[in-house]
Write a protein that binds this DNA or RNA. Structure first.
Lengths: 360, 360
DNA sequence: TTGTAGGCGTTATCAT
DNA sequence: ATGATAACGCCTACAA
């Protein structure tokens, strides 16, 4: 199929439309029309010859050339904080799926937690002239780079691009908002309903809006219920962060706390392992709840109480928003899912009797 | 910063080098040199003015235009089967990291298990004229699309592109190979050493090389040890697949099997949950082992015995291979990690006494 | 040091 | 229906 080289091709370079046209014995314009033809205005005999020539030569149109000739690309740019995190990879999966059915190519950049890096990425991405830029999990709170980011994105938009933020409300762009505050409130109320009163919260640094929103929602619900302020422990927004926070909590004495709320599931899962390693049994000695309801929440023991966020749907919604021309926001629900990691607490009287474990 | 529009820009279009040059009062060539300068041959005063103009206008060079002018891009294309799978997202993280330090942009496509789709993706990708194409977790065994894929990739390579396969030996391209066969053999031997003799294997359809290699390695080691042929159960290469296989196994009677080997961790973890749901306690009633050693292997209870594969390193290695001009393959180790999901089996005499669980 | 002009691979306009 | 030819945005000899 690749054989029978007639020496017409430049060494080490892809065949061009020119080559195809020559091979088919037609003009370059006809070749273009036959391959990509906006209309049916090519004699079918010629069309066939052109297609045959293209196949023989292994021709693929140069997307960059098309982009500059047509003045637009078929690209969507996605920036995430960390691909390896299930939160973002689920979003990415959604975006990818929507992009596929819209015949769009997705280019993906990893911001890795640095706002400077994020800004630089958006600049580079702008050079791609994508149809859409989707920013997921930005950490722009307070940072001086925030305004620069907004500027950059705004210029991109005035140049005709669409920008959609995921889970980053209050920036002047279309956003797919996740009900972080409300979800955390409902979680708090659910835990109160199960009999928990004294909490610790494992949260990330305040610049991460997702974290601070969830934290705030949780605390708000607690306050309006009149229970004691929860103990707040700041740590990384990762599994390791959750593990470390749990360790610290155990070291500084865990007596006062009945349950911990980690602002996302990977943290909660790391925390559960840390507790277990320290001889504190999650779901028995301490309640644990997370947020996101990632897949592995049900595979962990005890199964993790969480707040379900339709992550993949968020990616799909972002693309839908970008492709449609209405500029409204989308708000995604966040529903509490109670599981074994937060069993109903026995009433105070009986609690003492059940607490001590054989080995302790 | 964006204000003070002097009306010079075309509506709904990014500023071009032309605009910058005009704004700075120099020729377009000088502007190009000042911004992207191959040499230091621009009067510093002019250089400053050009940069100022670029900043004022929010200019970003059109990457497609640069690509076509220079004849090369700064893009690496990555194709994976499923981003949401930790196996692939870890690889993607490695690729992304290496790409960042090489100042390369990564575009990512999801093949979603269909060989046809994979082929089509590679074609489209070729149109991007990326410097590198990395294919991870291809399923080309036996399929007729295999030759077409190879053809496509080969044409890309003769056009000057670099192609690297991850975990797909025996295709005529540079490969980052994971020692699937050897790792599975060592796992089998380790389990034999722990006293297990009767196994079930949960594996994916044979076209998935990763699965069949692991399966084959496991069986080979068993055979040369003279233990009974394991029960093979075919299922999906996903968590759901593992869950389903475990269910089926329980239904058809689990008595004969002492341990199951699932060809990857997500399957193993799904299987553990299914066993638990059916009242069969993993690590007590049945041993469970996986492959990959994904992060959550240690967060699950009992912690999962697995074979550690340096996934992120695989992504890095692939980029290294692509960027260097030596064409050799890289072989990554796969080391057994024994954990609580496969405890040492008590000798036959005592086994009976320990087996029955209180509740059973 | 700077500007002019030609070219990169396509598409699109305009004659033919 | 087809073929010149002028863009598209940028880079880079070559000339000044």
């Amino acid at each position: 199929m690749t054989g029978m080289d007639d020496g017409s091709q430049t060494l080490s370079s892809s065949p061009t439309l020119h080559d195809v046209a020559r091979e088919a014995g037609v003009s370059i314009a006809t070749a273009s029309r036959a391959l990509n033809g906006s209309a049916r205005n090519v004699r079918s005999e010629n069309a066939t010859r052109v297609r045959a020539a293209a196949a023989k030569l292994g021709y693929e149109p140069h997307l960059s050339a098309q982009a500059i000739a047509k003045g637009s690309t078929r690209t969507v740019a996605l920036v995430v904080r960390d691909v390896a995190d299930p939160y973002f990879s689920s979003i990415a999966a959604g975006v990818g799926q929507a992009a596929e059915s819209a015949q769009l190519i997705v280019t993906m950049a990893v911001a890795d937690g640095s706002p400077e890096r994020e800004l630089e990425i958006v600049k580079t991405l702008r050079g791609q002239r994508p149809r859409v830029i989707i920013v997921a999990g930005s950490r722009v709170e307070g940072a001086g780079t925030r305004d620069a980011l907004v500027d950059e994105l705004q210029e991109y938009r005035t140049a005709g691009g669409r920008v959609v933020m995921i889970s980053q409300r209050d920036l002047p762009f279309s956003t797919v908002a996740i009900d972080n505050h409300g979800g955390a409130e409902r979680l708090a109320r659910a835990l109160l309903g199960l009999g928990y009163r004294r909490f610790a919260v494992f949260h990330a640094p305040a610049e991460i809006r997702t974290s601070s929103d969830r934290h705030a929602g949780f605390v708000a619900a607690l306050r309006s219920a009149g229970v004691p302020e929860p103990l707040a422990i700041e740590t990384g927004f990762t599994r390791a962060g959750g593990y470390g926070a749990a360790r610290r909590l155990v070291e500084q004495g865990i007596e006062g706390v009945e349950a911990v709320f980690a602002v996302n599931d990977v943290m909660a899962i790391g925390a559960m392992t840390a507790f277990r390693d320290a001889g504190v049994v999650p779901g028995v000695d301490i309640g644990v709840a997370g947020f996101d309801d990632i897949g592995s929440a049900v595979d962990v023991v005890p199964a993790l109480t969480s707040v379900a966020v339709p992550l993949q749907e968020a990616g799909l919604a972002a693309m839908r928003l970008a492709l449609s021309d209405d500029t409204g926001d989308v708000r995604l629900p966040a529903d509490v899912v109670l599981r074994e990691s937060t069993p109903r607490r026995a009433p105070a009287g009986k609690r003492q009797a059940r607490r001590p474990r054989p080995g302790a």
